[in-house]
C-alpha cells in the first residue's frame, strides 16, 4: 500500500488496511451492500458536505417561497437596481424585482431541468455506449452512426422543428409548464448523450478485454452480470464527470432555449435567464449576476462531489 496514491481525501491508513483485506475478496453476502455503500460514501467528507449544501439549496427552492414571501414579478420602479439590503438581500433588478425571490422560484426549474436532463443524457448514453461496447459489428456500427448523426445535427433548426412539431401537443397533454418541462428535458438530454455514449463505449472496449473480466467470463458470468457488476463500475469515472458537466450545461442551455421560444416563458426567472438578463448591467449591478452565477456554481460543485462520493461508494474495488 505504501506509496500508492490515495484516491480519497479521508482515508485513514488503518481502516484502509482493514478494508483492503476485506476488499481483496468480494464482500460477504451477510453484509448489506447499501449500508456498505453508505459507509463508504460517508468517508468522503466533501461529498457529505456537498450533500448538505445541495439539500439546503433544494430545501430553499422548494420551501423558500413560503418563507420569503415577496412576489417574483412585483415591478417597482422606485427600487430599480438596488444593491443588497435588508429588504432585498440579493438586491433588485432593473424592473425593481426582488432577485432573491426570483432565484428561489427559478431555482426549482433550473435544478429540476438540470438534474432531469442529466439523468436522461447519462441513461441514454450509458445504454447506447454499453450496448455498442459489448456488441461488435453491425450493432456497434449502427449505434455509433446514430451518435455521429446526432453530433452532426445543427441544433437551432432542429430545435425550431421540435418546437413546431411537438410543443402544442405536449402542452395539451401535460399542461403548459409540464409540456415545456418534458420538451426541454428531452431536447437537452437528447442532444447530450453522445459524448457519454462514446466515452462508455471506449471504456468498455478496453475493459472487456481486461483480466478480471476474462476471469469472470471464464467463471461463467452472464453478459448482463459482466456489464453490471464488472465493467460498468469501472467505467463510471468519466460518466460521473460527464453527468456533472451536463447539469451545468443543462442549466445554461435552458436559458439559451428560452431565446428560441422553446424554454419556459420569459417571465419565469430561471437561473440561466437571470444571469443572461444581468449581463448588460455587470458594471453597475455586479450582484445581480453574482447570485445566479454562484447558485449554478454551487449546485454544480456539490453535485460533482456527490458524484465522486457515489463512485467511491459504488466501486467495490476502492480501498477505504
Amino acid at each position: 500500500m505504501a506509496g500508492s496514491t490515495l484516491a480519497s481525501p479521508s482515508v485513514d491508513p488503518a481502516a484502509a488496511d482493514e478494508a483492503a483485506r476485506a476488499g481483496a475478496v468480494r464482500p460477504a453476502a451477510a453484509f448489506s451492500p447499501a449500508r456498505d455503500a453508505w459507509r463508504r460514501f460517508r468517508r468522503h467528507r466533501l461529498a457529505v458536505v456537498s450533500l448538505g449544501v445541495l439539500s439546503i439549496i433544494a430545501f430553499a427552492v422548494v420551501f423558500g417561497p413560503f418563507i420569503w414571501r415577496l412576489a417574483i414579478n412585483d415591478i417597482d420602479f422606485a427600487a430599480q437596481l438596488k444593491p443588497p439590503s435588508l429588504a432585498h438581500p440579493f438586491g433588485t433588478d432593473d424592473l425593481g424585482q426582488d432577485i432573491l425571490a426570483r432565484l428561489i422560484s427559478g431555482g426549482r426549474i433550473s435544478l429540476a431541468v438540470g438534474l432531469a436532463a442529466m439523468v436522461v443524457a447519462v441513461l441514454v448514453g450509458v445504454l447506447v455506449g454499453a450496448t455498442a461496447g459489448m456488441s461488435r459489428g453491425h450493432i456497434d456500427a449502427g449505434l455509433m452512426w446514430l451518435a455521429d448523426l446526432f453530433l452532426s445535427l445543427p441544433q437551432l433548426p432542429l430545435l425550431l422543428l421540435v418546437i413546431y412539431l411537438f410543443r402544442d401537443s405536449l402542452k395539451s397533454i401535460f399542461g403548459p409548464e409540464g409540456g415545456v418541462f418534458i420538451l426541454i428535458v428531452a431536447v437537452i438530454g437528447g442532444l447530450r448523450w453522445m459524448p457519454v455514449a462514446r466515452l462508455v463505449r471506449a471504456q468498455f472496449l478496453s475493459l472487456r478485454e481486461k483480466e478480471f473480466v476474462e476471469a469472470a467470463r471464464a467463471l461463467g458470468a452472464s453478459r448482463l452480470r459482466l456489464v453490471v457488476h464488472h465493467i460498468l463500475p469501472n467505467a463510471l469515472g468519466p460518466v460521473i464527470v460527464a453527468g456533472t458537466i451536463d447539469v451545468a450545461n443543462a442549466i445554461i442551455a435552458e436559458s439559451t432555449l428560452s431565446f428560441l421560444g422553446l424554454g419556459f416563458p420569459p417571465d419565469i426567472p430561471t437561473w440561466g435567464r437571470v444571469l443572461f438578463d444581468a449581463k448588460d448591467y455587470l458594471d453597475v449591478a455586479p450582484y445581480w449576476a453574482l447570485f445566479p452565477g454562484s447558485a449554478i456554481f454551487l449546485a454544480v460543485l456539490s453535485i460533482n462531489f456527490i458524484g465522486d462520493g457515489l463512485r467511491d461508494a459504488l466501486d467495490p474495488r476502492r480501498v477505504m
Partner: peptide, 22 residues
C-alpha cells in the same frame, strides 16, 4: 474547472471585455 463550465461563455466573455477593454 468548475467555474469554467458553470459560467456560460456569454458571461465570461463579457467579464473579460469589461476588465481588459473597458
Amino acid at each position: 474547472a468548475f467555474i469554467g463550465f458553470s459560467l456560460p461563455t456569454f458571461f465570461t466573455g463579457l467579464l473579460l471585455i469589461l476588465v481588459f477593454s473597458v
